[in-house]
């Protein structure tokens, strides 16, 4: 939902739900995902509804994603880094192996 005004000059590459993403070094993960056409970051825990960042400043907790296997990370407060494996989340956190 975001369009960059400038070309990326110092790229970092990572994946979101197995899709390759390129961002500018220093971008927050949430902004980088929005600028790569990612619309839905997760599905809500209670009602299973699509959600995406609302505030981009650490307040709303709508931008939660799984980063390198760690679930429910606030993507607006972390930097996009090379090789990150980012996944969207459906519903509540899983704690038992094999739950997904």
């Amino acid at each position: 939902m975001l369009r960059r005004l400038c070309e990326i000059t110092d790229p970092v590459r990572f994946s979101f739900d197995n899709r390759p993403i390129t961002a500018e070094r220093g971008d927050t993960l949430a902004a980088a995902l929005l600028a790569s056409g990612v619309e839905t970051f997760r599905h809500s825990v209670v009602g299973d509804q699509p959600r995406a960042p609302y505030c981009l400043m650490g307040v709303c907790f709508e931008c939660l994603v799984t980063v390198d296997g760690v679930q429910n990370q606030q993507s607006c407060l972390m930097e996009a880094r090379d090789g990150m494996v980012v996944e969207s989340r459906r519903g509540g956190r899983q704690v038992l192996q094999g739950q997904s």
């Binding site: 975001l2 971008d27 902004a31 980088a32 960042p53 609302y54 981009l56 400043m57």
Partner: peptide, 19 residues
């Protein structure tokens, strides 16, 4: 999705120069 605060849009503008 597609709804955010005006502040969020400004953050995107400031931090990654995106609109």
């Amino acid at each position: 999705p597609g709804v955010m605060t005006a502040g969020a849009a400004q953050i995107a503008l400031k931090s990654i120069a995106a609109i």
